[in-house]
Amino acid sequence: MADAAITVEGARKRYGKKDALDGLDLTVARGTVHAVLGPNGAGKTTLVRILATLLRADAGRIEVAGHDVAAEAYAVRLRIGLLGQHAALDEELGGPQNLEMFGRLHHLGARRARARAGELLARFELADTGRKPVSAYSGGMRRRLDLAASLITEPEVLFLDEPTTGLDPRGRAEVWDSVRSLVGGGTTVLLTTQYLEEADQLADRISVVDAGRVVADGTADELKAATGGDRVDVVLRDAGQLGAAVALLPLTGVRVDPDRRLLSAPVTDRMAALSGVVRALEEAGLEAEDVALRRPTLDEVFLHLTDRPKEAV
């Protein structure tokens, strides 16, 4: 694709006897947000580290912003930002000190580095942190500073490796807001995540990876449709009535979980299915504790795409 910000063809990386990447292909269009979705050990971090020039692939054609990551690492580094899984900050120093240091290492010069640090601190609501060391920051603040540090030069391509793993819901919302504010500025974002919801919230397109290769690719809606789309969950008061409910509800492909008194089924027309279920329960006099529509979980996407459950996370 001529207008690709990231091109990966047949990327391989082997650690010992394990293939971290097993012929992975990926194309990300300029100016889009692309999510790489998969469980632990699928090869997501290996992919990001190769794209960010931290790791060399064993084989494959890999280009970022039009430059080969191995042969032209310097050109790639001029054009990328990286938010890794672990905060890549000097924990002893304060936020401004960190950003100024990274600005100098981008060769902005002392004055521009200081000015840029000030802009980014204000933009990520960290302007009043002063000399407080990063080690005293909350998880969300640290992530925001880390993100600011990866945006020193307004990169063409930004890599976010599981940006919200380990954050509480508030921290997660903060990071999502920050990522959304980047979109539209022309930056291409490649995001890895274990959460379908996160990919759904942030990404234009999603690649599902498993065992070092892409097993599915598309928009969130396309993937969900392929997986069977939305689901309806019904929790009954009495587990003994589950069998009767399965027989009379207007649903197909029902899965039953007696321990949770739960039955779950894929639906196509959300509202018709919901009202149909509620009406059928009322007519039969079955008492339900909860009836809910929901999106498929990553486990279900996996089960569908790979015919095996997602490994324990």
């Binding site: 020039t53 990286l82 900050l89 990274f102």
Partner: peptide
Amino acid sequence: NKGVVDRFRSLPMANGA
């Protein structure tokens, strides 16, 4: 172990610095 070396290595800076 802190990940900060990863950031240094992803920057367009002199490798040995």
